[in-house]
Write a protein that binds this DNA or RNA. Structure first.
Lengths: 220, 220, 220, 220
DNA sequence: AATGAATGAGTTTTCATTCAT
DNA sequence: CATGAATGAAAACTCATTCAT
């Protein structure tokens, strides 16, 4: 089912760009073929059906995402938590990243009608939510955070982050001071995270962490 | 372009049901026609294009929504705020309402590609966010709430509500203790709203308000 | 099948205008209804089918035409012949008359596929050709014209007139000196009619006759 | 947009036959597909829209026609003129050719409503008229023809030929002695061309030329 | 490995016509 | 008389998919 790694990658890149430019509902195999400058026949040679291709695309981006979340277990909880939140901040000007989230959102709305898509989305969600809960649990256990229900607080955080992203994507930037995602993350830090910090615990500022993330990205 | 109110309503009801059963991406005029037991020709007789019909549908539900939000300005802010939050709570079992929100979500993801849809969504969003900000501003002015930036807190609340709804819709009910929306609203009340309340101010419980809302709905 | 004379007339006028504005191939009942500001239902009330309506329209204009051709039998053949030719001259600027001939042409091209239309067109053609032949026969018998075969010469005249009209309608006015119809009629007079005139016979000039026709039209 | 010459040709042949059998006004993509035994999808694969296909068809036949008109410049003017006229003669029995001219006539009546069709028709007309004028000009210069205005006489000839063809097509064969086109061409030769011939110039007879044309056609 | 040709099933849309009022 | 509502049949066009090469 999969040919040269390069070929597949070019095709999945095509899916990405096509999704950004046309949206899920209007996405055709031809759109994808155009974006990667191949023929639709070739797409079918690599992936039996359109659905297969879309699922493979989802798998790809989700795996990417999981890999980025992992491997940070050594740092202190309060730092990991801020990083977790900071990852969701993006500027409306970053048309690139915005489109990507939009593509994901569209696939999400398709989940209920496509079992295989739904499976991937659920896995992705589980990872996300458990990562947050895990950080909180860690913090509570080590006394960095006041005792809270990690699952419920994780639910709140993830919901707010997700909602902020969705709104910023679908509604554009109507915010006066900064992007929607930034405002929400700042408020989450001030109104939810800070009251949680144990006595004498200091968390890194959002800007510090954002700077770190940016530097990491540039290196890869 | 619009005939009897009743006629149009039957058609828009058909759109509603068709959206719930098929989703936006796969919605055909035939699906809608089937749901309202009319011919596709008739749909085109009343609405020139599919897009026209969908836009009319959006207009309808948004107007409905706005009317429901209005007319509550007399009650005290803390009560209005809880009601505002409570409106977003629903159980996964309510397949009906869930499907509807899903359909809306799909239309939202279509926004960036359809100007007319985008316009409606933006108007709807503005109303929602300003309603929340308005309640908060009221409360701050009357001393019911501690001084906060109403716009930023409204952004947080709306994002969390929206995200909770989206996740509950797209991911099904994986929650151990109650629906995702309920968990998030409860946490918002506990972690965001309660710290906001001025000394001596009591807010109604979520269950009380949910009961009230249910009673209201049954009456109409 | 026919209501008030006035109603029918308004409808047939609508057919005329619709035909001019949309062409036969794209003509819809709605186009006609729009032009006469009535409903399509009313059209069907007066004429059972679209075809019926079109046939009635053809009948109307053909009858008009025949009436104009008749009643000139008393004048001398050479005068009648020039008048016959002159009737075909029109300026490209007369958008009105041009459209009308176009409408007729379109119905003509539909003849082979519609028996009832074909019948009308054939009757109209017979009248036209026999009128020309009759004039020529008259002239030959009275010695005004040299002996020619009236039928064959009539065929030539009618073909040239018809062709000129068609070309002027469908191709617009690319002619350097005057309209296409005028050029052809002038050449017919010079190259076909004049060599036919018996010794000492004078025919009226084209301009004289055109002036007469114009005056006649204004009176009605 | 164009594949193998053969493929496209089969489709354009289908257009030809479909036009003959159904006429322009009632022509559907399905009709064309049936005639060339392909699917409508394939037609759309090769030509984006019905209009594109029709325009390509027009382009094809006009180019054919132009090529046939060219390459005869070496022969003497009186012979070329008779050939020019003879090309318009056809028998009503040739249902085939008749239908084709009918189809063309229908497209002509569509010209005023379709810019791209109009463009092609105008080009075709220009070629035709200038070919006739060119022959006449040649003959006048070399003394084969008496001095006449080549443009005006060309207009007369073309109009008569066109009209004859149109009438024969749309009205069927009501002629007693031979086809309408033959009668008109014969009369044009006798009444217009012969008086034009310089002293001592002989022109070929119509039958001779018709025989030649027929032989040419069989060879290809 | 890659493509152009080909298609069937389906989609939106059009339109003459009918019918209840 | 006159109309708006309603529809069935058919139109152009789309698109995922297949297949020969």
């Amino acid at each position: 089912m999969s040919g040269t790694a390069t070929d597949d990658d070019e095709i999945l890149d095509g899916v990405y760009r096509a999704l950004c430019n046309h949206g899920y509902a209007d996405l055709t195999m031809q759109d994808i073929a155009d974006e990667c400058e191949k023929s639709t026949s070739l797409l079918h040679y690599h992936y039996d059906t359109k659905d297969d291709l879309l699922v493979a695309f989802l798998d790809g981006i989700i795996t990417d995402y999981e890999q980025r979340l992992a491997g940070e277990t050594e740092r202190p909880p309060e730092q990991r938590l801020v990083t977790f939140l900071a990852r969701f901040v993006f500027e409306p000007s970053e048309g690139h990243r915005e489109s990507f989230h939009l593509a994901l959102l569209e696939m999400r709305s398709q989940g209920p009608f496509d079992e295989r898509i739904r499976d991937r989305l659920e896995r992705s969600d589980t990872v996300l939510r458990e990562t947050a809960a895990e950080i909180l649990r860690d913090g509570v256990e080590t006394g960095v955070f006041d005792p809270v229900d990690p699952d419920r607080t994780a639910a709140l955080l993830v919901a707010a982050l997700d909602g902020a992203r969705t709104r910023q994507i679908t509604l554009g930037d109507g915010q006066p001071d900064g992007s929607y995602t930034r405002v929400v993350v700042e408020e989450l830090l001030a109104q939810v995270v800070d009251p949680l910090l144990g006595a004498g615990v200091d968390r890194p500022t959002l800007d510090t962490v954002l700077g770190d993330l940016e530097r990491d990205e540039e290196r890869s």
